[in-house]
Design a protein around this nucleic acid. Structure first.
Lengths: 318, 318
DNA sequence: TATATTTGCATAACCAGTTATGTAATTAAG
DNA sequence: CTTAATTACATAACTGGTTATGCAAATATA
């Protein structure tokens, strides 16, 4: 492969580089058996090795132990049988099983294969010593890291980071009045029903939110308003503000906008000197509840609410 | 794959680990396209990327640039065409060529694919930062090291090292008389013809070699004599000894025995206080001549020889 | 004890690549 | 200017793996 291609596509090429390196190894392995005149195919090795550990085994056992699929082992056994390395069907009780073992001819090859195996081991170890970056350790580590969190998840996170950087949170202006109403109407009427308190607040945000000492923030993605959230002054002496009326346009979801809005609202509350935030929601809104937990909100016990849909209430100490 | 299997077979499993890791990447790549709703197969990426660099290209050009075989690109282009991403056959002069380019539909996907490509790049870079062993660098280094000397060569060297350690060089004893004769007869009559001087020396090594102040060393492999070499006292004031009658049994060749014998002979000569060694040979014996050069012997100009087959003469200053 | 489920494995079909092959178009050589 | 060699590419066949499928044997369940 052209080196140029790698450097131009960046780390995206890691997959194909791995493929190339692994196919190089496969080819070389085949050559090694040839040069030692061992009549065993390189790809038989795992099966051969398991059987060299003297006991007879079933196809499925071998497959599990070497991490191949059962049909793959099935075929390798067929090929090895054709070359006379395997005695098949040493039937035990279970007639479904194909208990296989190395034939006499197969057994005579064992020491040579194991010697060669040791040579390969040493050659690889020497390569590792020669290199400054330990490929073996690196693979082990990557297997672990990718098991912790698969590449696809990691890429998704990168996407969110990238898209977050294209989001701007701005203060409410009269031109966002419609957006504030429609975005909220959308999710409320999708999951629940619009209530009197909703209609009041959404139709007259100045009167019911802003003029009472509240605030509204708007999220812009590519300069278009796609999310809103309100910080409403409360009368309750225990709480300073309520975080409410958070809505993100469906087409802009998955871009971390909810989180960015909430962060901005919390920051705003702190700047305003608040020490405790309140919110109410409904457990059907899984993603939202999840976000609130991540922000540090804690569930609290019933407090009267003007909304029928509220079945969970949470608070955050700033 | 069972972790146990790795640890038991040692570094031999490197190939299959690489294969597993690379197939993991392939699967994840497919998922990533899916989760971003990009209607492009992961395996199309290299081709797509090349074409996104705006110019139209021929199949073969693409294949060379991305390092795939031509039929592989041919098929990818067919698949992409079926999905309407490619406009084919933008015919230039050469009617054999299939000049392809992204269609309008294909072009609309370019920014999304490139964005995703950047996300993958960043995700991998973060993984590299997270890991202590740099997989990317390791692969690069291994590609280089294996290009310098392929794995099969390295394994061969390991084999030689292992077998060398099973070789013992011992002094001649009367019981090795037959071996000394037959091993030498074998190669002489295979390549040339036995001459009078050969027959004398091989039948009466005591009289013609040992009693004249010469020595014979024997190489044992698994306690069997498989190689011989003689150090013959010379009359010539310019040279102390001649290294001659070196022979290794065909079945024991490739185990570095020739080298070990020669080293031992040279060492013996030094111990005996010699300062210059002489040998004669024939250029048809490529492997032998090669060995002599490696030992430091230098070609010299004609000196009379009792042997017809001698067409090259060499000397080594100790 | 009859029936449903599970298991072991062979076989088939698929996959993403490869090498080998055939053919038409082009270029080089006589 | 004809013939030979080369080139571009599609197609076929192979490779080393996979998943899907089907069947018979064994086990669990009613």
């Amino acid at each position: 492969m052209e080196k140029i291609f790698y450097t131009r596509t960046g780390k995206m090429a890691l997959g194909s580089r791995l493929r190339m390196l692994s196919s190089l190894f496969t080819e070389e392995a085949e050559k090694i058996y040839e040069q030692n005149r061992i009549p065993v195919r390189a790809k038989w090795f795992p099966v051969f090795y398991m059987l060299s550990q003297n006991e007879e085994k079933t196809i499925t056992e071998i497959a599990q132990e070497i991490g191949h699929s059962q049909p793959s082992v099935s075929r390798i056994i067929r090929e090895m049988t054709a070359k006379g390395l395997i005695t098949e069907n040493k039937k035990s009780g279970d007639k479904r099983q194909n208990r296989v073992a190395l034939s006499a001819k197969g057994k005579t090859l064992v020491p040579r294969v194991l010697e060669q195996c040791a040579d390969v081991h040493n050659a690889v170890e020497e390569l590792i010593r020669e290199a400054t970056h330990d490929l073996w350790e690196a693979i082990e580590e990557w297997e672990f890291l990718l098991e912790q969190q698969p590449l696809s998840r990691r890429v998704l996170q990168q996407k969110k980071i990238r898209e977050s950087s294209q989001v701007r949170i701005v203060n409410y202006e009269p031109k966002y009045k419609t957006v504030f109403r429609t975005l909220n109407e959308a999710w409320i009427s999708q999951y629940f029903e619009m209530e009197a308190a909703d209609i009041r607040a959404l139709n007259h945000p100045d009167k019911y939110i802003l003029n009472k000492g509240g605030h509204i923030l708007v999220a812009l993605y590519e300069e278009q308003p796609v999310g809103v959230c309100a910080l409403i002054k409360m009368d309750d002496p225990d709480y300073d503000y309520e975080m409410a009326k958070m809505a993100v346009a469906p087409e802009a979801q998955g871009k971390n906008i909810g989180k960015l809005l909430a962060d901005a609202i919390i920051h705003k509350a702190k700047v305003l000197g608040a020490s405790r935030l309140y919110l109410e929601s409904n457990t059907r809104l899984k993603a939202a509840i999840n976000l609130y937990y991540k922000l540090g909100f804690k569930k609290l016990n019933n407090r009267p609410s003007p909304y029928k849909r509220a079945n969970i209430q949470m608070a955050l100490d700033l």
